[in-house]
Nucleic acid binder design. Structure first.
Lengths: 336, 336
DNA sequence: CTGAAAGCGCTAACAA
DNA sequence: TTGTTAGCGCTTTCAG
């Protein structure tokens, strides 16, 4: 029934516990013959070491935490795949925590991470997060941290991002080159560095192309789906409504399509639409959607790799690392 | 820097470690005044108990594992949300393991779960899984298990599923009622009970409606995207090709749409399409897709709730539990 | 090369 | 009501 422990294994082998422990770790102190006997017996009895005993003693858990807003978004799904791939490869375990965009929850989780439960943390912050004390605290506590995608700009932690500013610029200039004269930008939050960067890129493009910028054309959506729908319909109901829309987060695609449908504004002839999006189905939407695709898998992977460097290499100053992986524009019918 | 431990907390309070421990657990043995002092000081010093020390001693980890094929599928994304919601509520931690449809990996992971790392397991098996010994072993080992969605049919473990047979029947009869005369069924695996159940439902419908059944119209796809695309194009290139398709898993939607596009077969006039699918974007595809939507969030939630009953209630015979939550048909243009 | 023993931080039985 | 103490299973000095 219950798993065998190292003591029983030692008894079975007529060896001391210490010797068995060292043999299993392939220590240089142990003779080849003994190692062979030990590993063989361990296998035969299906000995599985208790990770918590080991963690307690070594003060290492071989576990990392991934703290993200939610998983029902193709970016994070893909990122988790990337993280899992490298964690698995390194023999680490992955704890997942969803904040559901609640800053308070994020704080609680990070505080709990000081317990020694985890060796490192990957985080993509809440859209409410403006104060980064909880992250700094944890880092002070000796837990290596890598922020990815939604990072804190002015905090000294390792970061993995995509080229948000350039992508915002690219999105806007793409619309402009397709003939748009008035371009709206849909954001999710005033705090989120990534949507802000994208917004800055968008604004810069307007300036460079000498297009008028209207403050009201930057719309900040909320968590309330019905409300967002309304905001967008209001935007598009104006007599002189925008003829181009940049959607900065995937979840706003549906309300935009719905709004255009409800208002009888055909895409792309009346309104051209481009979205930051990792949905494989973007290609088969009606109309197919021009997207800026983030390298989600690679970002998860890179963030994890960076974290493990910080975990495994001494003298590696993790918090000064920073990496940018470019996004890609996929041109489709919605901006034809 | 390093977190404070219970001993230091005790010293600070001029109490014994045991007393402090009990006070923190709100034990009846401890006076109200002492409890107050202890919790206050614990808060002041930001005392965070070491979970591994506690786990080692109590032989409970307040951690569950979720083992699934992958997360880049909207069903599992939603299910994780459901699981996270109840785990968080119960104060449990969630370890996530992706098998990537590899049976071997699944075995390895489940074997490792015997270590005491987890108190319970939620699993959705690989499409290669035909042998369930690893699951039974783990259960024998005293780890409560709930299988969800992709379950093992003839194994004595708790199960949370949707009404796959009925849904398959429903999908087929929907197509038949829309006028289809030859209906194909796209599956992912011969082993997967859920796709088989759906297939049985489909076949039963054909029988009931006296529609001829052609063995070649049941197509088993693989992990190879290009190959799947080819299989589907082959199916639809026949002179007398099927005029209705049931897609049993989300990831086959794209190749079907692509194949129809490549072969110039318009949906729904030439081929009607219905898919098992949880994509919010199904509504805005071109054409919008008729779907059978599984209650993904609820299934994750229910599985987790069941697991916690097994974890917390004694005399609760978890492995005899079984729950079915119905799916829903959403009629759209692809079967008009 | 192997063994003995201390102790990681916490809980729980037993004593006081 | 509080304190003392023996471990949980493992790793790691230090001795042999």
């Amino acid at each position: 029934m219950d798993s065998i422990n190292i003591r029983q294994l030692a008894v079975e082998l007529n060896l001391s516990v210490g010797t068995v422990s060292k043999a299993l770790k392939d220590s240089y102190e142990i003779s080849a013959e003994t190692k062979r006997r030990v590993t063989e017996m361990a296998l035969r009895l299906n000995y599985i070491p208790n990770p918590y005993a080991s963690s307690l003693r070594r003060r290492k858990s071989k576990t990392i935490a991934v703290v993200i807003p939610e998983v029902a978004d193709s970016f994070f799904s893909l990122a988790i795949n990337g993280i899992d791939a490298v964690a698995r490869n390194k023999g680490y375990h992955v704890l997942i925590y969803l904040t559901h965009e609640s800053f308070e929850r994020e704080q609680t989780i990070l505080n709990e991470c000081k317990s020694g439960r985890i060796d490192g943390l990957l985080i993509s912050v809440t859209k409410e997060t403006t104060d980064y004390q909880h992250i700094c605290d944890l880092q002070q506590n000796g837990v290596p941290i890598v922020a990815f995608d939604r990072v804190a700009e002015d905090v000294n932690i390792a970061k993995v991002t995509t080229n948000d500013f350039e992508s915002g610029y690219l999105a806007a200039s793409h619309l402009i080159e397709k003939g748009c004269k008035r371009i709206a930008y849909l954001s999710l939050s005033k705090n989120l560095s990534i949507t802000n960067q994208r917004m800055e890129g968008y604004r810069q493009a307007l300036v460079n192309y000498s297009i008028a910028m209207n403050e009201n054309d930057t719309v900040f959506c909320t968590m309330d789906d019905a409300g967002n729908q309304q905001l967008i319909e209001d935007l598009l109901s104006q007599s002189n409504h925008p003829d181009g829309i940049i959607i900065s987060v995937e979840k706003l695609i549906l309300p935009v399509y719905d709004a255009c449908h409800n208002l009888n504004l055909s895409i792309p002839s009346k309104v051209k639409v481009i979205s930051f999006c990792n949905l494989p189905s973007a290609r088969i939407l009606n109309p197919s959607l021009t997207t800026i695709t983030q390298p989600a898998f690679e970002m998860g992977e890179t963030a994890a790799e960076l974290l493990f460097k910080g975990l495994e290499k001494r003298n590696f100053i993790l918090k000064e690392e920073s990496m940018t992986i470019p996004s890609i524009l996929n041109e489709r019918e919605s901006t034809l």
